[in-house]
Amino acid sequence: MPTVTIDGHSVEVERGATVLDAARYAGIWIPTLCYHPALSSEASCRLCMVELDRGDWRQLVTACNYPVRHDVIVYVMSERAQQARRGVMELLLARSPDSQELKELAERMGVKGTLWPKVTESQRNCILCGLCVRVCEQIIGKSAIGFAGRGADRTVAAPFRQPSEDCIGCGACAAVCPVGTIEVRVHKDECEVEISPFKSRVKLLVCKQCGAPILSTQVCEQALRNVGWATCLPMQACSQGNVGMGRKSAHATFWPELRKRLRLCPKCRRLQTAGRVASP
């Protein structure tokens, strides 16, 4: 296994691991914005710059996607590496001066502020890290949002900048957004969930008992589809005990069963179960 020496500390990592993996393993902090362990690395924010020793010269590389293929020496706290990260952070602060999250990260990096004015438009502090785009594509499998336009006009948007038909209202994008650009809004009256700022809306499943929203109908369906197919196929556990049934009918019996259970919000379900236990 190759050894990575970071600011003098050595760690061994699997071949193909990244410098960032190695640093995290060694307990060394490198700031990141567009990196998420569950997603592919695009190295677009350029915040994780470190210096790589190339023998007779040193090269700035992004830690989050530089693959370790043999022993390497890197510097996280060298003057040049720090300066590079600071430079990138200052540009981001100029783009999204109102982001509290960004300011906190900057502070942790020792960046006091920025000398650059705001010259680019950012939609609600969006720094275009692309995590939302990747989670929607790679984890949810929907690609309901993506990058539109290029250069300074680049934005995250849904197709035609209209509410997306592919959005299932899962909110994964909001969960990964590092600067809080994306919000999940619940519209109780319409019984809908909205993923803002994309304006995509999906009907909510509500509790039969108390009327509280449970989750997006589409997430439910997608989950049922995924879970349904996956667990129903071996078929031992099918609600009616129909072992050896064809795919379709097994699914057909499994689905309503799950559906039934999903009619109640967690709270009411707990109450119901408790009630059932109390008086069998």
Binding site: A43, R46, L91, A94, W116, L128, R150, G151, A152, R154
Partner: peptide, 19 residues
């Protein structure tokens, strides 16, 4: 700046500052 893909921070933001 017009031709930058806009993917990475320094090119997109840095060129905008330069301009």
């Amino acid at each position: 700046l017009n031709e930058s893909c806009g993917k990475c921070t320094p090119c997109r933001e840095g060129l905008a500052q330069m301009r």
